[in-house]
Structure formats: structure tokens, C-alpha cells
Design a binder for these strands. Sequence first.
DNA 1: GAGGAAGTCACCCATTTGGGTGATGCTTCA
DNA 2: TGAAGCATCACCCAAATGGGTGACTTCCTC
Lengths: 223, 223
Amino acid sequence: MEKPKPLSVITLEDDASYTETLKLLLEANGQYQVVQSFRNPVHFLCQLPNLVAEVFLLDVNLPKLSGVQCVSEVRREHPTSRILILTVHDSDAMVLDAFLGGADGYLLKDESLENVHLAIQEAVRGGAPMSASIARKVVRLLGQLKDQGSSPDPQELSEPSVVEKLLTSREYEILILLSKGDRYKDIAAKLHVTVDTVKTHIRHIYEKLHVRNKAEAVARLLS
Amino acid sequence: MEKPKPLSVITLEDDASYTETLKLLLEANGQYQVVQSFRNPVHFLCQLPNLVAEVFLLDVNLPKLSGVQCVSEVRREHPTSRILILTVHDSDAMVLDAFLGGADGYLLKDESLENVHLAIQEAVRGGAPMSASIARKVVRLLGQLKDQGSSPDPQELSEPSVVEKLLTSREYEILILLSKGDRYKDIAAKLHVTVDTVKTHIRHIYEKLHVRNKAEAVARLLS
DNA sequence: GAGGAAGTCACCCATTTGGGTGATGCTTCA
DNA sequence: TGAAGCATCACCCAAATGGGTGACTTCCTC
């Protein structure tokens, strides 16, 4: 049982020597390959759409950008990659930002390099590795958010979403039918109009939502 | 560096043989002492105020009592003890219940006994040990609770995981990409496979979810 | 009464999608 | 060892989709 392909890793870390240490560690046994290392978060974000990696290892200690902003950028561009935060910061806001942005794990730099290695493995396996203190924080935050959310809520499903406001009622109606799996001809039959009319409506939906097909439109509707 | 006092552990577990196994494991190296083992949750709760232990190891598979009820009882009586859930159940509701009730960690029984041992150590050290799949769930729940601070309904929350469990990881991955508006060729490029392969995966997704096209599949995913 | 948004319909054309069938290699598990 | 599941690829073909352009009506508003 050998590993034909090392997992590709991209790092973002402003400390050059730590970057080097990480690279050495990760590549030591051929399990990972650090294909690119960024020091400058802006460069990183600019290159983001062109990057390809299974694992992103990020220090969110960024001068200007917020952590959540950065992480969610990465997540949006690379929905299937694993994103691990590796930083010295452990504020509630930072941790919450990271996970809400879509991070898979959060490690503190006082973690041993051995543990960093293990954490990456766990993330790739589908886990959510965290340093012990971070894990407790997450659990606590979970409880806090829950408490906040339970009181002032009329429990309305018909909450006027962004999508609903943007589209006309006809367009919204059609989008709903799309999400149920109806094809153009099905919708046309249900609404007693022609397929061309349905097409026109759907074209308008795409323009307004800035999407390119049914799947993305439905995702927007239900997001 | 010897251990003068083993940590006291109390277990609640209705499978007698598993209880025995746990006891043997934990006491093997003198690090822990299982001071009491309960089979019956009612007896356990009745005795609760009289119990003394540093660690509670609980199976929340209880016939009558809800998990959160049980855990929060223990937490109220023993605010400084460590509470670990060790069970086969991994529903969103169960996990949420456990942590909101005050659990420190959550392990699935398919975890190796070795890992159970490590998890207890981590809990005692102040961590929040979780099985990998549980950790991911917690992170996801965190995001969901934040998104709609309004409707933290366990029924609702457990819905997306149905899809996630039904599909293979590859299929799930592809479905995610579909929801982002990617076409077959886009997905093929990102995953480094041919378009035909993507088609095959998508056909399987449709069969498993009983849907007929991208839009309906994405709707099911995001339900 | 002009202008604009919304809803309706039509035609053309290329691309995408879905469905069928079949096949290979690799694990896992009984 | 054999079955089953998974991931991969291929070929064929019909249906569905998307993009472009243009046009007609109604209703509302300025």
C-alpha cells in the first residue's frame, strides 16, 4: 500500500521560516507536497481561482482582511478542498469567523508539528481537527448561538428572501417549479403558457441572479 | 512521574459486556478507576447527587429520557466533571442535545478502544474530543445555527445529512459542484476525470435521490 | 400620452444534459 | 473466492437547455 500521489498543499503564512519548517515537515515522508507557499494574502487571493490543491493551510493573521472574508473566498473557489487554519490567534471572533467561513479545522501554532501533520490527515479523512482549547470554544459558541436564536422568532417560513424580492412573482413561481424538477415543458403545461415563454422567464431569472443554469439558480433560491 | 491517584470514572451503558470491556481497558494501566457502572439510566439519575467521579462516560441510547435531559442533569450536579458521550447514535439532534446539555466530548462506538482512552485524556486536559464525523457535524451545526439564528430545529437540521449519507463522497462532492453552477465539463476539469465519468456519477446521484435533473438534485441537497 | 416593467410568444442554433448499455480495475466484506 | 460497491471511461442518441434577437400586449405611473 503505497501512495502514488502526494496530497497537494498550499500554504499562506507570513513567517518565512515557519513556512519553510512546515514544508519540510509535510514533505518529509512523501505524503504531502507543498505546491505553493504564499506570504502575501493579497497575492494569495488574487491567484485563488487559479490555484489547485487538496489542502489549504492558512494563517488568518492578516493585517487588513478579516478571517471570515478570506476563508469564505477560499471556500467558494474550492468547495471540495480542505481548509485548515493554523495561527496563534484564538479569539472567539476569529474562531467563529473561520468556521462560519467554511474552514474544516483550526489549529494553534503551539501545537506540535507532529499534531499538525495528524490534523491534516484527519481533515482529509473528513474530520474537523481542532486544538483542544479551540474545540472547547467551538462547543461553547455552539451553545451561545443556540441560546440567542431561540427567543425572538415568529417561525416564518415565508421569510422574504433576497431572491424573492429580486424576482417578479411569475419568475419566482417558475423558479420554485424548477426546484421541484420540472422541465420547461412541464412548467409550460402547469402555467398554461408556451415553452418559449418559460424560457424567457428563466433567462430573466438567470440575469437577475447572475447564474448560468438551473442548478445554480435553485441553489441560490435555497441558500 | 507516577500517578498517585487514578481518575475516577463512572459509566452508564446498557450493554453489560461492553461495560466490562470498557472497565478492563480503562483500568489496564492504572490511569483510571471505574468506580461505578450503571446499566439503568433511571437508577443512575436517582443516584446522581451521591456520585463522585472525575469522568462520566455515557451512552445516550436511553429508552425514555432524552439525551439532553440526561446530560444536563449530570452537568448540573457535577459542574466540574468531564462528561463524555459514547454511543452509536450520530443524529444531528442527538449531538446537538449532548453538547447543549453540557457534554465535553462525543465519541462513536466504532471508535477503537485506544481512541476512547485518548479521548478521555483529552477531555481531562480540557479538550473536546469528538469522532471525526461528529466534529464535522458540530462545525456544520455551528454554521446553520448562525445562519438562521431563528430556527434551530433538530428536525430541520438533520435533513441535509440524509443526502450526505446516501451518496458516496465522490457523488456528494459532485453534487456540491453542480449546485455552484458547474457544468459537466467544469466538474470533469476540477476533478481531473472525463466528462463521461461525471455523467455516470450524476446518473447514480439521480437514482439514489429519485430525482430527474440537476435542479431537483440540488434542491434535495439544500432542502 | 410616453415610458417602463411584466408577461407573452416566436425562430434560430449550439451546447448541455439525460438515458441506455457496457466495460475495466480496485476494495471490501462475507 | 465471489459478490458487491465504487470510481473510472466509452459510445450512441434524443431531449432539454441556454443564448440571441425581436415583437406584441397589458398595466401602471409620471
